[in-house]
Design a protein around this nucleic acid. Sequence first.
DNA 1: CTGAAAGCGCTTACAG
DNA 2: CTGAAAGCGCTTACAG
Lengths: 347, 347
Amino acid sequence: MERPDRPQTIKIKQVAELAGVAPSSVSRALNDHPDVSAEMRARVLAAAERLGYQPNFLAQSLRRGVSRTVGFIVRDISIPLFAGIVKGAEQALESHGYSILLTNSLREPALEAKYITVLEQRSVDGLILSLQSESSPDTLAALRRLRVPAVLLDRELPGFDLDAVVFDHAAGVRDAVASLLRLGHRHVGLVVDSARIRASRERRRGFLRAHEEAGLAPAAGAIVEVGVFSPRAALEAALSLLDAKPPPTAIVAGDSQLGVGLLTALHERRLRQGIDVDVVVCDDVDLLALMDPPISVVQRDAEEMGTVAAQLLVKRLADATAPPMVTVLPTRFIPRGSTGPAKRAGT
Amino acid sequence: MERPDRPQTIKIKQVAELAGVAPSSVSRALNDHPDVSAEMRARVLAAAERLGYQPNFLAQSLRRGVSRTVGFIVRDISIPLFAGIVKGAEQALESHGYSILLTNSLREPALEAKYITVLEQRSVDGLILSLQSESSPDTLAALRRLRVPAVLLDRELPGFDLDAVVFDHAAGVRDAVASLLRLGHRHVGLVVDSARIRASRERRRGFLRAHEEAGLAPAAGAIVEVGVFSPRAALEAALSLLDAKPPPTAIVAGDSQLGVGLLTALHERRLRQGIDVDVVVCDDVDLLALMDPPISVVQRDAEEMGTVAAQLLVKRLADATAPPMVTVLPTRFIPRGSTGPAKRAGT
DNA sequence: CTGAAAGCGCTTACAG
DNA sequence: CTGAAAGCGCTTACAG
């Protein structure tokens, strides 16, 4: 009942011996070096093939000074948006021969900073970062020490000159709120994360712009900020809106977790979306369309963000001197059953 | 407007020079080698600290023959279950100094096999695998060539003697179906993935066991298998159940994607869960509890599966000779509003 | 207890 | 066009 002995890993030296040439020639032949005779190439390829030779990536990386590895820090991979981004990035990077080292910062700036350093120590060629805040001193210090390129996701770090991919949150929220105002809503609420990050600032901007364009003033206390995100804080923020006197007739939740908080709050208050309070969630999670009534959303393409981030990084690795690029990705309001004519407009 | 010159990476040689000792002594001091004098240790630590020395992981890995890196192949990280598993595994592995190289097989056996090889070439110390099938020849061949340990998630590969973590799907489905039968349902449907994987076989087993224990026979055609998963196939499988004559009074969906398929099918047929047809979904996604009525689920702990897989792998890396372990994780039926007394029992 | 040497598995100037 | 040598940045037997 012994395990069969598995063959040892084949090294370049063994290929060289079988082919009757020098290891350096094997390397050149396998790496498509121009100055290799046809005969040499054939002998080497045959020997490599026969032995099933696979070059050791670690050794190549050490010698070449390039690892074809990208570090990816997300706040929490179990949040669907981030999972989508990572999926998009992974596929795009893979097509260029890169692999992803993934870590979760769990929204802790200390971990974020630590992982930036750890990943650099692991010789990643670059980083893709979904940071928690735009002002954590630890993270900023780690970024200043960083000696490889980084692409930022949905954040802006003034003074850092990094490539970035951001969503045009303002446009989607503006369209959603404009639609609500057109439907007669006069008291629309907005729940966002801390205004210390770009995404929340942009959503607020879209919200205000829609009001401005409609010649209307937002209700007092219409915008609620969740300082540090947690499910509990999201729920409480939503409850505080629902419990306002008068309460809003429609509420926009800044992302899917805030959306879950809002729906939980509705549930606790025995209210229904689209009937008692109109609802928009900024993120299109598939189940939202299957609720009753289906929930209107501001949609964004997570995978595309990942794909674009990967492309920016690959470009940056090819040309360190090009000016940093910020790509803006669209968001789109999709009205569904949870938004409609205001029933209690002006309550 | 020049960028400030960032300091070059510090190497062991520079630490040695500053401390006035040999590089080998620096290495020993930093790696807590027993035979190092207190004075040597102090000088080296001071010099390393002063220069901000961080050993090059690639070089250490190559020399030590160990990379503290684990390869993780998931079918699709954007599926919440897998995201949860990866999160759990990442945290557990990180606490042991391991990082994760993540790849998505996209359910394609050819990619799965390729990534097993690629990850091995990248010198991972071990693999955690969420495979598509239990019988893909490419994958099995790649696994036979594999020279590092692997932990299997929710799959069984006879003849491979691998560590594995699996869910006790049968128990949760059995409890769910038993509950439905007790409530008077006499025609319960089950949608599962291909029976060629353990998870589906176990769910079917739980389904049959509940009937057996109740002394009842499952309705003809009660179990529908989705051969190769796709959203479309999931929808069609659910529709075929709903369109049966007579239709089931309750349906159990084998996982969250099949659940989405089922809910979409209900939507298309203008039926409501818990009112027209009772519904159980095997996976607790947070929005399911917020639907109206809330959906009964068979819950499992994705993060725990990741944590346990990581622990098994770490143990295996410490002791290659211990017998392979299969850890079984519980699943739990949580009744909610989408299941209740059969209204059309026996229709 | 410390240092000099060898070596992990490659690649790449450098001769020839 | 090919081979011998050096070197990527470390660690670890081996002397002393």
